[in-house]
């Protein structure tokens, strides 16, 4: 009772019981960089990890398969034609007695190389032009967007047929024909992203600090668009593989003796009635590759989106 009756307090009556000094500013969590955080969230997505494993296996098989099987993909042996899959010929042989496993590996190299080459080319052109349009805006933006609309309005199959007449049917012509229309999508996407980013205060802050446009692009705009670009890269590789397969299937793509998964599918469909396994393997590889890229892309979308951070 007596203790409570004291109503006037002096500063001596109090003592500090809480925290003192800078402890409040301490962060106990270890520092994580952006990319390690992305990897952590990517790993959390089981399906994407499965996709990544499938992709690694496919790539390993395509790279080292011919060495393991020890056969030549062009070697013709009429005594060995249309053999069903067995211990020696893992995927069987075709009607000219060639080992399908080795051919699928070689075809995969071409398919994947074309997929990556097209993606790289279309992303370099697309991000450069999209970035310029988005950053400069105004007349430059209007002009580039009209160009993109015009290119986008030409059916790409028509373009490819014309180009294959002009340039001949080489791998270069194929990459050229597929990228000439595909970069427009990238350009649109990068333009939108850059336009959104350049309104952000950190770009204004850099300008206020005296940063040159080149510095703003390299240090601020590009690193911030990288996430969305990577997601789209992983999603566009399979679409190029798909297009290549389709073009090879209808005879506009890779020409013999070179081969690709699409070309193999086209060749082996003639034997579908008698030896369905011949068509099955190249198709399986296309499906596995495309599926794995999609799964990875899906996981990356979530992992790279800062709004979905947990």
């Amino acid at each position: 009772m007596e203790a409570n009756s004291k109503l006037i307090f002096e500063s001596d009556d109090f003592e500090v019981v809480g925290t003192k000094g800078l402890d409040a500013e301490k962060i106990s969590k270890p520092s994580i960089t952006f990319w390690s955080d992305v990897w952590r969230r990517f790993r959390a997505n089981k399906l994407s990890v499965v996709g990544l494993i499938i992709l690694v296996l496919v790539v390993l098989m395509v790279c080292f398969g011919p060495m393991i099987s020890g056969k030549d993909y062009q070697f013709i042996d009429y005594n060995m034609k249309n053999i069903k899959p067995n211990g020696t010929y893992w995927f069987g042989t075709d009607e000219m007695g060639r080992d399908i496993f080795t051919r699928v590996c070689y075809g995969g190299r071409i398919s994947i190389i074309i997929g990556i080459a097209c993606t790289v080319v279309s992303f370099i052109i697309g991000s450069a032009l999209g970035g310029i349009a988005g950053y400069l805006g105004g007349v430059v933006d209007d002009f580039l967007m009209r160009v993109i609309e015009i290119i986008g309005s030409i059916p790409y199959l028509v373009l490819i047929v014309i180009l294959s007449f002009v340039l001949g049917r080489s791998m270069f012509a194929l990459v050229f024909a597929m990228t000439i229309t595909a970069w427009t999508g990238t350009a649109r996407m990068v333009r939108g992203q850059v336009m959104q980013l350049k309104q952000q205060d950190f770009v204004a802050a850099a300008t206020a600090l005296g940063a040159s446009p080149a510095r703003i692009i390299v240090k601020h705009l590009l690193p911030n668009t990288l996430g969305i670009i990577i997601v789209n890269l992983t999603l566009s590789i399979p679409s190029f593989i798909f297009s290549e397969s389709f073009l090879s299937y209808i005879g506009l793509g890779v020409q013999p003796p070179e081969t690709s998964w699409g070309a193999l599918a086209s060749l082996y469909q003639t034997r579908l009635m008698f030896d369905p396994y011949q068509l099955f393997f190249p198709c399986l590889m296309i499906v596995l590759t495309v599926l794995s890229f999609h799964l990875i892309g899906d996981g990356l979308t979530d992992a790279l989106d800062p709004k979905l951070r947990k």
Binding site: F34, Q200, A204, L209, N224
Partner: peptide
């Protein structure tokens, strides 16, 4: 001039580059 005059922004979320 940018060495002599600076600005502090309203929104502390958009004024720092998330990648730096």
């Amino acid at each position: 001039f940018t060495r002599k005059a600076q600005i502090i922004f309203q929104d502390p979320y958009s004024s720092l580059d998330p990648r730096m």
